[in-house]
Amino acid sequence: MTWTVDGVRISRVVEHVMPFPVDFFAEATPAAVAAEPDLALDFVDAHGRYRMSLHSYLLEVDGRRIVVDTCCGNGKERPLIPDFHRRTGPYLADLTDEGFAPDSVDAVVCTHLHLDHTGWNTRLVDGAWVPTFPRARYLLGAADLDAWGRSDDPLHAPAFADSVRPVLDAGLVDPVAGDRALADGVELRATPGHTPGHLSVWIGDRCVITGDVLHHPIQCRHPEWTATGDGDPDLARATRRELLETAAASGALVLGTHFAGSSAGHVVRDGHVYRFVAED
C-alpha cells in the first residue's frame, strides 16, 4: 500500500496480523462488537475477535527516509505473548524491497516504547543486540524513556533492555518532549495517555499516523473504550476524542498503526461518536 500526501510518500510493511480477544478493550462485549457489521472481515474475524496488524509506516520526504514504529522484531524473548516470542519473519527483506534498506534510513520514530513498537530498533549480531538502522536518529518520547527506563514491567522492561537501551548506548536517540517538526510538513504531536510520552505523526492536518491513540476502528464508535496497556485511561480517552475530532473536522487520512486491511480511511462524525470509513 502507498499513499502520497502533500508530497510525502507513505508506504507500509506488515510484520504480521493476529487476533486479539474482545476483552482487550475493558468495556467491550461480544454483542457490542457484533453490532458493527461494517467491521467484518478486515477488522473482526469470524470468531468475533479483533484483527490487529503489526506494521511500520515508511515516509519519504525531501530525500529522507523515515520509519514509524518497528513492530516486534525477530529473535526477541517474549514468552508472555507467544505470537511475539522468538519470531523469524521476513521484515527486513520486505523493508529493503520497499527501498528502505536499513543503512539507508535517516530517522526512526517510535510512537511509544511498548514491545510491539520497538522490536526492530535492534537486531542480533554475534550474540549482541545492535541498532538495526545505524545511520538513523531514533526519535523517542522523553517521558516514555524516563518511565520505561525505570520500569520492571515483565512485558516492557525486557523490550527496553534489548530494543531501546542499545540505541541509547550507541548515542542515536533524540528524546522528544512535546510537539516537534520532523521534516517539511511532517510533525510529531504529543498524544499522551496510552503511555506518558506517546507521539502521533501528522502531515499538516491532512494525514495522521495514530500510534496507539486508536488500536482498532471500533474505538471510533466507542472512544470511551480503554485498551489493555493504557497507562492513564482517562487521559487516553480525552486524547482519543481530540484526535478523532481533529481528523473528522479536517478530513484527514487516518493511518491506523494496528488497523488491518488497508489500514487507511477517514473518520466521520456519527452523532456524538464517529465512524471509520476504510479505503480499499
Score class of each variant (00 low, 15 high):
Thr2Asn: 07
Trp3Asn: 01
Asp6Pro: 03
Val22Met: 10
Asp23Ile: 10
Glu27Gln: 12
Ala31Val: 07
Ala31His: 15
Ala32Gly: 06
Glu36Gly: 00
Pro37Met: 03
Leu39Glu: 06
Asp42Val: 03
Asp45His: 04
Arg49Tyr: 08
His55Cys: 00
Tyr57Trp: 15
Leu59Asn: 05
Asp62Ser: 13
Gly63Glu: 13
Gly63Asp: 13
Arg64Tyr: 04
Asp69Phe: 10
Thr70Leu: 13
Lys76Gln: 12
Ile81Pro: 11
Arg86Leu: 12
Pro90Asp: 11
Asp94Glu: 15
Thr96Tyr: 13
Glu98Val: 10
Val105Thr: 14
Asp106Cys: 10
Leu115Ser: 15
Leu115Trp: 15
Asn121Gln: 14
Val125Tyr: 05
Asp126His: 01
Gly127Tyr: 04
Gly141Met: 12
Asp152His: 15
Pro154Thr: 14
Leu168Met: 13
Asp169His: 14
Val173Ile: 12
Asp179Trp: 01
Asp184Ile: 08
Gly185Val: 04
Val186Met: 03
Glu187Leu: 07
Arg189Pro: 01
Ala190Tyr: 00
Thr191Asn: 04
Pro192Gly: 02
His194Ala: 13
Gly197Ala: 12
Ser200Glu: 06
Trp202Val: 02
Trp202Arg: 00
Asp205Lys: 05
Arg206Cys: 09
Val208Met: 08
Gly211Pro: 09
Val213Trp: 07
Val213His: 07
Pro217Thr: 06
Cys220Phe: 09
Trp225Asn: 03
Thr226Asn: 14
Gly231Ala: 10
Gly231Pro: 13
Pro233Met: 10
Leu235Asp: 11
Ala236Leu: 08
Ala236Ser: 10
Ala238Phe: 07
Thr239Leu: 06
Thr239Tyr: 01
Ala247Asp: 05
Ala248Trp: 08
Ser250Leu: 08
Phe276Asn: 01
Phe276His: 03
Val277Gly: 00
Glu279Ala: 04
Glu279Gly: 03
Asp280Pro: 02
Asp280Arg: 01
